[in-house]
């Protein structure tokens, strides 16, 4: 036990699984204690939040709203992955690089200013939301992934050339397959970016629902317990998707975690 505590407190130490779980439990406990004993009167108590959650779920259809949002995010995610991967792999062609650079720079625009032009393009409604979310995620995804592709060491290309591989084979083996673990990693981060933009996007037409719209409505009426309840649902969903992506990565790229430096 002593050595576990020591290992957990000193820098650059490796810890075992049990210690890691104990650490997580300790932090969760600390967070709960902070919440219960919080001096801020505006913070609803856990009991209030729980009551609000059950009310939202059983009587105000939180379940279907979650479904609406999940569908939106997954739809945008599929488009994002397809567009961004194509753009990132295209950086191996010199002629495409300026285009990809430009797409990456678009991430500075933010979404608010784009609502109007995108409405004109898509006609509003669900397609508008998908387009906005895809735009938001794809710019970040492309930025990260294009960097991964450009950072592939020259040596990997040379190695395949010496083996006699054709350039198409090199593209597949080194650029596409060789960066799959990173692509999954970035997809994982992008899901989080998607969630963080959801309120903004769903706020455009609240009538169509979704948890983002729900949270905005509760906000308007200062129903804090409800807001926190929805936040907790979003957090849990996010964690679940994150965990799912992690599992997928371990399944498809078992080599990736072998290389990760564990101190």
């Amino acid at each position: 036990m002593r050595h576990r505590i020591v290992a957990a407190l000193l820098p650059n130490r490796a810890i075992d699984r049990t210690t890691a779980l104990l650490l997580v439990a300790a932090w969760v406990l600390a967070a709960l204690l902070c919440w219960v004993f919080s001096p801020f009167a505006t913070l609803p108590t856990p009991a209030e939040v729980f009551a609000a959650l059950s009310d939202l779920w059983w009587r105000r259809g939180l379940g279907p709203e979650v479904g609406t949002t999940l569908k939106l995010i997954l739809h945008a995610l599929v488009l994002t992955v397809a567009i961004s991967l194509a753009l990132s792999y295209a950086t191996v062609i010199a002629a495409c690089r300026p285009l990809v650079e430009a797409v990456c720079k678009l991430r500075f625009l933010g979404l608010t200013g784009l609502i109007f032009p995108f409405t004109l393009l898509t006609g509003g409604g669900y397609p508008l939301k998908v387009a906005l979310l895809t735009f938001g995620m794809a710019t970040f995804f492309t930025t990260a992934m294009a960097q991964v592709v450009m950072d592939i060491p020259q040596e990997r290309f040379d190695h395949m050339r010496v083996l006699g591989a054709s350039e198409a084979r090199i593209l597949w083996e080194v650029v596409v397959r060789g960066t799959l673990d990173r692509a999954l990693d970035i997809t994982r981060q992008n899901v989080a970016i998607g969630w963080s933009m959801i309120t903004m996007v769903e706020g455009i037409s609240r009538a169509e629902g979704g948890v983002g719209a729900l949270i905005l409505n509760q906000n308007k009426h200062f129903r804090l317990a409800e807001v926190y309840a929805i936040l907790i649902v979003i957090l849990l969903l996010g964690l679940l998707m994150d965990y799912g992506m992690g599992a997928l990565e371990r399944l498809l790229c078992p080599y990736a975690h072998l290389e990760r430096v564990r101190r």
Partner: peptide, 20 residues
């Protein structure tokens, strides 16, 4: 000694053949 990191030892050798 670069090798294809996402391929097993056997696959690394097989690819060297199929490339050729």
């Amino acid at each position: 000694y670069p090798l294809l990191r996402h391929r097993t030892v056997l696959e690394n050798l097989i690819i060297a053949g199929t490339c050729n």
